[in-house]
Structures are given as structure tokens and as C-alpha cells.
Write a protein that binds this DNA or RNA. Structure first.
Lengths: 201, 201
DNA sequence: CGATTTTTTGAATCATATCAACGTACGTGG
DNA sequence: CCACGTACGTTGATATGATTCAAAAAATCG
């Protein structure tokens, strides 16, 4: 009889499989193969799963929690290029593929549970379950077009408009992260965000 | 004996197949299938292959020439979100998938030759040559990470620094497009770009 | 509760936008 | 092949959105 931890992991894997099945069908055997190659990892608040300068050797799927991906400028300022919440993948895919050091760091902003595909098994899992090529094609397509929309917003609206748009689109998420990180993601300073908020009230 | 036009088309298709084979291997039969489903299209200078408000019903692969993808703001300003040159794919993949009107327009900035995958055959071609799932997974991954790098640059460097970086990275390309379009792509006004250039000399 | 982190406020400053005018180049039709 | 018109690039004056710095206030955490 499985004990509590095993049940937990089972649930985690179920979340990933459910997500995959929103894009491609999987036979029971294929599900088993996937389960066999991935593993879960608990990431503590503020813990890094990738540190800039290191090689990225995994894909991470957020089951629960929040990750951020960010860079450090010469003068020490952080710039958040991405958040990942439930059901999003995050990795430095370039570093993963080339096995060169990453420019980015990835950090948990809450106690976070991720499902990990390690570099070692990535090609194997794709070979054994070729449907995953299609799944990740669709995942990357979505991520790509979302990022293009983001560029569009950055160029076509003021910081204030971007803040309100983001706030209206993801009100629950805004609650979960410190304001200065939202400012960094939106491309301006925390002081400026504070002033935007002061106006509204 | 094939006449000149057919030879031309053959060469075009060869470029696409060569590109695909940089990412996945193809058997001669698979090559034939791909050739059978795609077709080339000549796009005149300033011609639109997609007009905002219309549904995007093709993927475009640039064999030769330049495409730009842009939006129009309420006040009539254009914002270029993407360029595509030789060996790049361009489409509004969201509009393509959902069959909803696109926010973007796609226009040729030179006489341009593209290879087209039409909506009608897209799923068929993927079914018949499943390796293309992998190919496009890698294409989208690259496009996604390139766009993330772009966001990183937008946030971490001034307009001036972005201009110099772009100029150093793609000097030949800068020659081929009007300055006001480069300004639009980099996220500032043509006047400002003009002033940056004045400084340097 | 004290210590640290996060947010706010205000004043000065800077990067970039806006507008308007002028200069230049280029392509088309006569 | 010239002339003209339109599209593109430059320049300068002024305006503005956003940053910087410093300090205080508020929130969070052990």
C-alpha cells in the first residue's frame, strides 16, 4: 500500500499527464513511460533551481508555486524576463541544448513543486514517446506568441497602462508576488510602480 | 525537361529541405511528401501576406527577402514586433490555430519569395511526416528564446545601447531596411534614432 | 519585539517623445 | 533624362514619462 509521500508524487505526475493530454492523447503505456522518466522536486522559498553561470540541465514544470527567471545587470539590478506558475514550463532551453553557461537564474518565489525532465533522459523520453515532440511544439509556440504579445505591449503602452493591464489580467497573481518584482517584470522601477498605485487611490 | 520556372521552384524547395535537415533527417520519400504539400509564393515590395483583422491561414518560410510583422496603435503608430529574413518562419500562429482575426499584419520589405504551408494541409503534413513536429518544436524553441533575449535587452539597456548592439550584430540587415522601421523594432522613434546616429559621427 | 525587507514620498534629473520645419533622396511619368 | 512629388532622414525647441537618490513609513518575519 502506497504511503502518503508516494500518493503525493502520484498526484503531481497526474497534473503533468493531465496537462499533456490537453494537447495530445496518451496511451496508458505512454503515461507509464513518462512517469518513469520524470521526477518531482520541492523547491524552497528563494531557492535557486538554476544559477547564472551554471549549465541548465533540466526542464521544469511548475505543479504548484511560482518561479521567476531573471538576469543581473552589471550595476547589480535584476531584470525578470519570465514568471512561471502552475502548469507552465520553465528552463533556459538554450543553455540546456548547448550545455553552455546560462545568463539567467531561476528562483522560487514560494515553496514550489516542480516536475523535472533531466538532460540525461530528455532525448530518450522524446524517442520513446514521440507525441511529446508535438506537445512541446505546441508549448513553445504558445510561449513564443505570448512573448511576442508582451513585446507588443511594452512598445505600445506606457508603464502605467502595462501595470493596469497586467493587474486586470492576473489579479490573483499580483497578490502573490512583491511589487518590486512586478515592476521588474513590467520593465520599470519599484518607485515608479508605487507612484502609479498612489494615483489610482 | 523542366523549364526555367520549374527549376526555380525546385531550388526554392531545396532551401527549405536543407533547412529542415539541419534539425532532423529526412528520407527521400519524406522529402517528396513535403515538396508535395508546400508551394512557393512571390510577394511584391510592400505587399501584405497577412492583414490585421483577417484570419491567418498559412505558415511562411522566407527563402529570400524580408518580412515584417507589425501592429497599428489607436493613434496610427506602427510597431514592428518581428522581422523575418532568409530561413526564418513567420506567421500569426495564434490566429492560424484559433482561426480568429489577427492583430498583426505581415508585409514584404523587399521583393520576397516565401514557401507556404496552408492551413488545409498543415495537419496532414505533420501526420505524414511526424519528424516535422520535432523540427517545429526546435524552431519555436529558438524563436521563443530569441524573443526572451530581446525582452532582456529592452529592459536592461538604453535605446542607444540597443541600437549599437543590433547594428553590430546585423550590419548587413540594417542596410536593407529603412531607419524608421529599425527604430520601430527597437522600440523608439525615428527622430531619436537619427539623433543617436548624429552623435557617433 | 527588534530586525530586515518592502513600499512610499519628494525633489532633482535624465532619457526619450513630440512637434514642426527643413533637407535629402529617390522613383515615376512626361 | 529631367522634374517633380512623395517618402525618408535630420535638427532644434519643448514637453513628459520614468529614473535616481535619500529618507521615512509600513509590512513581514523570526
Amino acid at each position: 500500500m502506497p504511503h502518503s509521500l508516494e500518493i503525493q508524487i502520484l498526484i503531481m505526475h497526474t497534473e503533468l499527464l493531465a496537462h499533456i493530454k490537453r494537447f495530445v492523447s496518451l496511451t496508458p503505456e505512454e503515461e507509464k513511460i513518462v512517469k518513469g522518466y520524470v521526477h518531482t522536486q520541492d523547491v524552497k522559498y528563494k531557492e535557486l533551481v538554476l544559477k547564472s553561470g551554471q549549465v541548465c540541465d533540466a526542464y521544469y514544470f511548475v505543479v504548484k508555486g511560482v518561479l521567476r527567471m531573471y538576469t543581473l545587470t552589471d550595476n547589480g539590478t535584476e531584470h525578470i524576463v519570465q514568471f512561471a506558475i502552475d502548469n507552465w514550463w520553465m528552463s533556459d532551453y538554450t543553455s540546456f541544448d548547448t550545455q553552455k553557461p546560462s545568463l539567467f537564474s531561476i528562483q522560487a518565489l514560494e515553496p514550489t513543486t516542480v516536475i523535472v525532465i533531466d538532460k540525461k533522459v530528455q532525448e530518450i523520453i522524446f524517442q520513446e514517446v514521440p507525441k511529446l515532440e508535438r506537445y512541446f511544439r505546441l508549448i513553445f509556440q504558445r510561449a513564443y506568441t505570448a512573448t511576442l504579445m508582451r513585446v507588443h505591449f511594452i512598445f505600445s503602452s506606457s508603464g502605467e497602462a502595462r501595470y493596469h493591464h497586467f493587474n486586470n489580467s492576473f489579479p490573483e497573481f499580483v497578490q502573490r508576488i512583491p511589487q518590486y518584482m512586478l515592476a521588474s517584470y513590467l520593465g520599470f522601477t519599484p518607485e515608479f510602480l508605487s507612484k502609479i498605485r498612489a494615483k489610482k487611490i
